[in-house]
Computed example of a mutant assay.
Amino acid sequence: MSDPSSSVPADLLADLRAEGEELDALVGDLDPAGWARPTPAPGWSLAHQIAHLEWTDRAALLALTDADAFAKQVETALAAPDSFVDDGAAEGAALPPGELLARWRAGRSALGEALAAADAGERFPWYGPPMKAASMASARLMETWAHGQDVADALGATRTPTARLRHVARIGVRARNYAFAVRGLPAPEAEFRVELVAPDGVEVWAYGPADAAQRVTGPALDFCLLVTQRAHRTDLALVATGADADRWLDIAQAFAGPAGQGREPRDA
């Protein structure tokens, strides 16, 4: 029997699975016209959103199971750094919707099994720094939730926020310095205090020292929408105390890669 301490936490894997299932429920019965519906991401249809998730799930599976093959995929990405993400999404979006849906479902299942079997202490290659399996699972959940928001917005659907957002919030907090660095800005030296009201309206998710001068407070959902750049800051109920914290809310991002363009304010 394997040592439970060497495995990715079961609750994290369950949350990742639930996030995929919730998004699956939004798209599973759509007709071809539904799959072609545009989303808030410029040039991306609903099919592009699912194709991107299928592509990145497949890349994560390769990173976990075949480092040499993944290295070749990274070489391909480096040869076209400005277009490889869009190219992967476009390739999948061109498939018949039923085939794309089947591939995404199979890939989610295979990735879940690989994450469950992975040694929690090992670091696996990725497009940025190598990641442990738990971090990879959290990142996949974050991206599934974020692209799921694009899908929900395109369909005019309202999703009920859940405690799974704690994974997204944690990545957003930990990515603070990256958000500054990717814009060529020096990261603040002092730690921030972040206090987020959980979706249940009662629990508070707190990060950083309680006596920090730089602070961010507000709903966890709003923070997650901000750091995944699915909503503009002016449309969210987040409060910054301190100049550095205020600057962070203008540039925050939880995802790797170049600085995102974000969303326009609702009134724009």
Rank of each mutant, 00 (worst) to 15 (best):
Arg263Trp: 10
Ser135Phe: 11
Tyr127Lys: 09
Ala213Lys: 12
Arg105Phe: 05
Ala114Tyr: 00
Leu61Tyr: 02
Ser6Asn: 13
Pro258Ile: 11
Gly20Ile: 01
Trp44Tyr: 10
Arg266Thr: 11
Gly218Val: 10
Arg17Glu: 15
Ser45Cys: 09
Asp119Arg: 00
Ala114Pro: 00
His167Cys: 04
Trp44Gln: 03
Lys132Arg: 15
Asp267His: 14
Leu12Gly: 03
Ala146Gly: 02
Phe84Trp: 15
Thr160Ser: 13
Arg247Gly: 03
Leu100His: 04
Glu143Ser: 04
Ala154Thr: 07
Ala89Tyr: 04
Asp3Cys: 10
Ala41Glu: 12
Leu238Val: 06
Trp205Ile: 07
Asp3Tyr: 06
Arg17Leu: 09
Pro219His: 09
Arg123Leu: 14
Ala231Asn: 07
Leu100Asp: 01
Ala254Trp: 03
Gly242Met: 08
Tyr207Ile: 04
Asp246Ser: 15
Leu46Ser: 00
Glu113Gln: 14
Leu62Thr: 14
Ala59His: 11
Pro40Phe: 04
Trp35Ser: 04
Met136Asp: 02
Ala90Gln: 12
Pro96Ser: 03
Pro38Arg: 11
Arg233Pro: 06
Arg58Trp: 12
Phe180Lys: 05
Asp246Lys: 09
Ala237Thr: 00
Ala163Gln: 11
His48Gly: 04
Gln229Ser: 12
Glu54Gln: 14
Arg263His: 06
Leu141Ala: 10
Asn177His: 13
Asp119Met: 05
Phe180Ile: 04
Gly43Met: 08
Gly257Thr: 05
Pro125Gln: 12
